[in-house]
Computed example of a mutant assay.
Amino acid sequence: MLTILHILFAVLTFGFAVYGLLTKNFEYQNFMILSMGMMMLVMGLKEFRRKRKWVAYLMFLAAAFILFVAANIFLTSP
């Protein structure tokens, strides 16, 4: 299940990034950052289940920062 979520969020992140680069329209960049944060959170959960706690904590920290940035963008953008 975590692998499916990981792939789903990776495809969403890649899709939003490619769309922005090809069209020069960065309107959906907020959703790209949100999906990237969720992908990092799922990767942290996968590493935690593999008993690689140090890597999992780093991924959780990165996910928390990315999700904080995404929430900040969503709350401050008009």
Rank of each mutant, 00 (worst) to 15 (best):
21 L>W: 11
44 G>H: 06
27 E>L: 11
23 T>D: 06
27 E>I: 10
68 F>N: 05
52 R>V: 07
31 F>K: 01
16 F>P: 03
26 F>S: 09
30 N>S: 14
61 L>S: 15
33 I>S: 03
2 L>T: 06
3 T>A: 13
16 F>T: 06
62 A>T: 08
34 L>K: 01
50 R>K: 14
40 M>Q: 13
22 L>K: 14
76 T>C: 02
77 S>R: 10
48 F>R: 10
37 G>T: 00
77 S>Q: 13
69 V>W: 01
63 A>T: 06
27 E>C: 05
14 F>Q: 04
67 L>R: 02
68 F>C: 08
18 V>E: 09
31 F>N: 02
7 I>Y: 09
72 N>D: 09
32 M>E: 07
32 M>H: 01
69 V>H: 00
47 E>L: 15
2 L>W: 12
56 A>C: 08
3 T>M: 12
78 P>M: 09
40 M>F: 14
54 W>T: 12
19 Y>D: 08
69 V>F: 03
14 F>H: 01
74 F>N: 04
6 H>D: 11
44 G>L: 07
38 M>Y: 15
70 A>N: 06
67 L>Q: 06
1 M>V: 07
64 A>H: 01
4 I>M: 09
14 F>P: 00
9 F>W: 04
23 T>E: 06
20 G>C: 10
23 T>H: 09
5 L>Q: 08
42 V>G: 04
42 V>A: 11
17 A>V: 15
21 L>P: 01
1 M>R: 10
71 A>R: 03
2 L>F: 15
22 L>H: 08
58 L>I: 13
46 K>R: 15
67 L>K: 03
33 I>F: 05
57 Y>S: 11
20 G>S: 12
76 T>Y: 04
